[in-house]
């Protein structure tokens, strides 16, 4: 984040059903200089906040309070808002892992995480948002 000097710091949406972990993440992100635009603990709430707040990056746990998984919410967010998602999870099955690896706007940090891992993943997501997304739009526009 030191290499980009935005007027407003990048905004992050945290989707995490464990409140302690969510709190920890909030503090760490703010220490890193990001703005936390909200914390959601269900997929539905995450979609609503992503669409309303338009964060630069979504940090997403895969298991949430309701039946909707983090992956299902991420797909909606990706489709409707083109926001990159960093999955922060303790567990991924092979299918989910494959989907994350396939998509450039999906990234993964395994729990328990270190701050540097979160920071690196958000950095990659922001890079995609400014470069890859534009390219994608250009591609669609033409």
């Amino acid at each position: 984040m030191n290499n980009t000097e935005p007027k407003a710091p990048p905004s992050i949406l945290i989707v995490e059903d464990e409140s302690i972990v969510a709190m920890d993440l909030s503090f760490r992100l703010e220490e890193m200089g990001y703005t936390v635009v909200g914390v959601a603990d269900t997929g539905e709430e995450a979609i609503a906040l992503a669409l309303s707040q338009k964060p630069d990056v979504v940090l997403m746990d895969l298991r949430l309070k309701t039946d909707m998984t983090g992956m299902e919410a991420a797909r909606v967010i990706e489709t409707q808002a083109s926001i990159p998602v960093v999955f922060v999870t303790a567990y991924t099955d092979a299918q989910t892992m494959a989907e994350i690896q396939r998509k450039p706007d999906f990234l993964l940090v395994m729990k328990p995480f270190v701050s540097s891992e979160i920071q690196t993943a958000i950095g990659k997501a922001l890079t995609w948002r400014t470069d890859g997304h534009t390219l994608s739009n250009n591609g669609v526009g033409r």
Binding site: E18, V21, M23, D24, F27, R63, A90, Y91, K111
Partner: peptide, 24 residues
């Protein structure tokens, strides 16, 4: 077993987060 490992890891994350919050 996978669920157990997942929950263990999740709990270990909570412990890590607690330690991190403590350090603040």
């Amino acid at each position: 077993l996978k669920e157990v490992h997942h929950r263990v890891k999740n709990n270990l994350q909570i412990i890590t987060s607690l330690l991190n919050l403590q350090a603040r």
